[in-house]
Simulated scan of single mutants.
Amino acid sequence: MSSTKLFIMLPVMLAARKLDGEDPKVVNLLRLAYGGIQACCVLLVLFTYIRSTAAAQKAQGTIYVPPPPQPFADPNGKKKYTEVKYGTHLVSTARSLLGSTLFGICMTVGLHLYKGMVVGLAIQTIMGPINLLENPLVKALVFGNGLRREDKIFSEKAAAELTDADEIVDESGNPVPRQTREGRVSASFEDLLLDTWDAGNKADVGKLLAAVNKQNCNFKTSESSWTPLMVLSGLNASGVRDAIRQLIEIGADPRIVDGEGWNSLHWAAFHGSVEAARELVKDESLISVKDKDGKVPLEMAKSEGNTDVAKFLEASRNTETTGTNETSTGLRKRK
């Protein structure tokens, strides 16, 4: 438990013990406060769960997640990381949050109704939302900038960040042999592509660019059909715009869509990469393409709060529309 939470919880416990549990007015007010706050918490958790599930459908790659902090863990001991698919971990974390929230509400209400416990009701009225606000998914999806891999909200590592001092286990707790791990970090093109994505805005774009050629520039990943151009379009790393231009010059097609119907401009819009968008809109056809949910890149940028990209795409669309109208007017005049 963090010192901040402890600092809040102790006064709350002391104050809760002074409540008159025999006074119907006090009890009813407490029930009303608890019910209202927990209803908001449930809505917040449901929103987080829905967004996590949607994000997991596009998530790719393997991550290595450390266990929760232990108060008596050996600081000099080997760090143990669990090997898990990013999308799987995202969904399981969101499901765990939803389950624990509902279970906590049921327990608190049950103890209050059958045992007349008022103190627990008062404590959870305050501590419930505080616990929720400390959850990494809630902080990222509701109050933060979304699920950006470079933020490492689970304190995870990518394959390239593992060291010899790290102990790796699978989801069942079985050790992962070193040779297996080395095989997974091999220099296959798909691994390189996913490692670049895992590195986020700190990615070495030049390394990926050096591995791309005319034969693999439109390569698609096995799970969700990501291309090198899509991955670069979703990054805000240094040199992204030049890299995108070079890929297009050797034959990379920005009109290719992934499993969700996103083209490269959708990727730039969703992840807030203005530099990528500036290069991609040179192909004006990308602006009006809709994904499987019927969203064009501009709508996606707006829904994700990426105002810089949204403003740029809005201006680009207006320019395109103005140009079309001028042409139409000219044709009518010639008639």
Rank of each mutant, 00 (worst) to 15 (best):
Q179E: 14
T180F: 06
R181K: 14
R181D: 06
R181W: 11
E182Q: 08
G183H: 12
R184Q: 15
S186P: 07
S186Y: 09
S186G: 15
S186R: 14
S186V: 09
S188Q: 03
S188G: 02
S188M: 01
D191R: 15
D191Y: 11
D191Q: 15
L192K: 15
L194G: 04
D195C: 06
D195N: 11
D195L: 08
T196Q: 05
W197Y: 13
A199R: 02
G200D: 07
N201P: 00
K202D: 12
A203N: 04
V205F: 02
V205Y: 03
K207L: 06
K207N: 05
K207D: 05
L208R: 02
A210R: 04
A210I: 01
A210M: 04
A210H: 05
A211E: 08
V212G: 04
V212C: 09
V212E: 07
N213M: 09
K214V: 11
C217H: 07
C217E: 06
C217M: 07
N218P: 01
F219Q: 09
K220T: 13
K220E: 14
T221A: 03
E223H: 07
S224D: 11
S224M: 11
S224W: 08
S224V: 09
S225A: 12
S225F: 08
W226D: 14
T227F: 13
V231P: 03
V231R: 00
V231H: 02
S233F: 13
L235C: 02
L235W: 00
A237S: 09
A237V: 06
S238R: 13
V240T: 13
R241S: 15
R241F: 00
D242Q: 09
D242A: 10
I244A: 01
R245F: 01
Q246R: 15
Q246I: 09
Q246H: 11
L247M: 11
L247P: 00
I248Y: 11
I248A: 12
E249Q: 13
E249R: 13
E249S: 14
I250Y: 05
G251F: 09
D253P: 00
P254G: 03
P254N: 03
R255V: 13
R255H: 11
I256G: 12
I256L: 15
V257D: 11
D258A: 01
D258Q: 01
D258N: 13
G259K: 04
G259I: 00
E260W: 08
W262M: 04
N263E: 06
N263C: 07
S264K: 00
L265H: 05
W267Y: 13
A269L: 14
A269N: 14
F270V: 09
F270L: 07
H271A: 06
G272Q: 03
G272F: 02
V274C: 11
R278D: 05
E279L: 00
E279V: 02
L280S: 04
L280C: 05
V281W: 02
V281Q: 02
V281Y: 02
V281G: 01
K282A: 12
K282V: 10
D283S: 08
S285E: 15
S288E: 14
S288F: 11
V289T: 12
K290G: 09
K290W: 12
D291G: 04
D291I: 09
K292V: 15
K292I: 15
K292T: 15
D293R: 08
D293K: 09
G294Y: 03
G294D: 03
G294T: 06
V296T: 14
P297M: 08
L298H: 03
E299Y: 10
M300S: 10
M300C: 08
K302F: 06
S303V: 06
S303C: 05
S303R: 10
E304F: 13
